[in-house]
Design a protein around this nucleic acid. Structure first.
Lengths: 339, 339
DNA sequence: ACAACAATTTCAAACGTTTGAAATTACAAT
DNA sequence: ATTGTAATTTCAAACGTTTGAAATTGTTGT
């Protein structure tokens, strides 16, 4: 391995000078600096980030924890985050929790040992001992998409309650009277808010809670599919559903197709996230749009800003909340009474 | 930061002993070892991977370079890789190249400085100076999905030529006579092989090359869409298309829907990869199945095996090649002569 | 010729581990 | 008591950087 000392030896300089030169310190003579850079290139020098990290106590790596990159929503978020990190010379370490608190803890541990400089958490919100510890020690964190209960923390997300409201309103305006909510069972702030917004819209058109059955599964197509089957079985009079995310919505769509339920004539569906699949021909889901990639990017930038200017002890955490919007496509239509 | 020395101080031991104990060396007395572990837990010791990495010259991080995690194919590959890496206490650093050689080089540099222990490359195959260097210095690498030209390297992928052949055969067996190939413009071994396999099938049914126009774009829905429009314009007699990946196929699907071209009655499409979208209601793409997640997992395991048993200088590189299979869904039907 | 000062370079310690070699301790065999 | 040996612990160097303090060199004004 070729090190700073090799350059020093070759040029008959101390390695301090070489180090200084490579970091373009104003202290070192321009000519020497140039010579050093040339020599470095010449003998193929590559800085050792481990050594540098050890003394500077940072790794130039930031971590992101998501439930599953295979889910287009999180893929987009991660992509945005990576985009922002590389721009600043950082790298992105990615972890999948599979929605399991246990795996989340495990990753949190591992990743902290790796001395990542900060962490983006797009993850579940169960109580997590390890996470509590990390918060307690004021480790640089930003929560994304779903915030963490009652704490003053960095957060970038979208107004979930409003999103849920938009979905509910859309459905009630179409004159649906019995509307189901099909959610994920996880204790996630963002999903709960979506649900509350949704209920708010129902109340505004004087629909009682009993008119909207709630089924809980997870955030997958399969879960949406089986929830839908259960729904049709148990609540045949329901005419519309609001799904906690697009994958669930697609699962419902699948169930409808299979059961010969016509969409949107017989049944309306609105999803959440507007993953790219939602706009595909044959899917064309009505859904609530979220800025996935942008959220990832903003989260990373927020983190990096705090890391880079960490000298100023501005401890105030930031919350960035964007506004979602409804995208009406082809899975919603008028309710039974208005046709 | 609490270090090994703090434990040593507390227990009145040398820090060698502590280090040994924490690495469960058989040298140290069982009782002391236990005490050390307890103390470590007690004062919340966390090993510093940077320091360890510096002396051991490894980081317990492996890198993966993909064009775009947002593409479900690569998301699945990355997921598989991550699964395998965490199992062994490693972490996964992810980089997106956006299909650009320049970005690939940049990442390659950055990631090497980070001292990742190995690298999985699911990337483009243009000539890349930096990559050549890395190969030259025998850095632990495994290519995935698409191999690198004429070199003896680790590789895990699927038999692309056979995959292409399956697609072509399917279409010719359905009696299509004019079949287009819609590919990505990138010099990727795997795509070229798919094309060759496809041509082989055509030749077997005595179709000339001229009967199969070839359009090149990139591997996206948008590109598939515009290629399809161009195809319909320029080669109206074509009755089927083989797309280099599912996203392209979906783009073609979209163009057909828009143009009122009935599928599979008027036009047949076969995709490649079998990303999860391919099986969705309303899409139901006939496609060539690839083991995405498994490939990622195998690639990571191959790499890790070589890293962990690197003492034995077995320099022989491995090639793992799986066999793809055709999944017939609803986007292919009989050609015009047989209906 | 020398002081004063600036520009440039070097020294040496530090970051937190690991590990071969050396030292210490304990204990059994003589 | 002495030796030999095994078990356990400690020493000290090393990994490749960065950086405050000290040292050296060069320049200018007197």
């Amino acid at each position: 391995m070729v090190t700073i000392k090799d350059i020093a030896r070759k040029l008959n300089l101390s390695y301090s000078t070489v180090s200084l030169a490579l970091n373009s310190s104003p202290l070192v003579n321009k000519d020497t600096a140039k010579k050093v850079r040339e020599a470095a290139l010449d003998i193929g020098y590559q800085p050792n980030a481990l050594a540098r990290g050890l003394v500077l106590n940072k790794s130039a790596i930031i971590g992101i924890i998501v439930p599953d990159v295979t889910n287009p929503f999180f893929a987009a978020v991660a992509r945005g985050a990576e985009e922002a990190t590389v721009e600043k010379g950082y790298n992105l370490l990615i972890c999948n929790t599979e929605w399991k608190t246990e795996l989340e803890s495990c990753h949190l541990r591992l990743i902290q040992e790796k001395k990542v400089d900060g962490l983006i958490l797009a993850s579940i919100n169960n109580k997590n001992q390890v996470l509590e510890e990390i918060i307690a020690q004021a480790f640089p964190l930003v929560f994304i998409s779903s915030s963490y209960p009652n704490t003053d923390l960095n957060f970038v997300g979208m107004d979930s309650e409003h999103g849920g409201y938009l979905a509910g309103k859309h459905l009630t305006e179409l004159d649906h009277k019995k509307i189901a909510f099909i959610g994920g069972k996880f204790n996630s702030e963002s999903v709960e808010s979506r649900y509350h917004g949704f209920l708010k819209a129902l109340k505004e058109s004087n629909l009682a809670y009993d008119d909207s059955p709630t089924l809980m599964g997870d955030f997958s197509i399969e879960s949406g599919y089986s929830s839908a089957l259960e729904l049709f079985e148990q609540f045949p009079r329901v005419t519309a559903a609001f799904a906690a995310d697009d994958l669930i919505a697609i699962g419902i769509l699948k169930a409808c197709r299979e059961k010969g339920i016509k969409i949107p004539q017989d049944f309306s569906i609105v999803g959440y996230d507007d993953i790219f699949i939602a706009s595909l021909p044959g899917i064309e889901l009505t859904t609530v749009f979220q800025e996935k990639r942008l959220m990832g990017k903003m989260a990373a930038n927020l983190l990096l800003d705090q890391l880079i200017f960490k000298k100023s002890p501005k401890k105030e955490k930031k919350k960035i909340i964007l506004t979602p919007r409804l995208v009406v496509r082809k899975t919603t239509g008028p309710g039974p009474d208005s046709r």
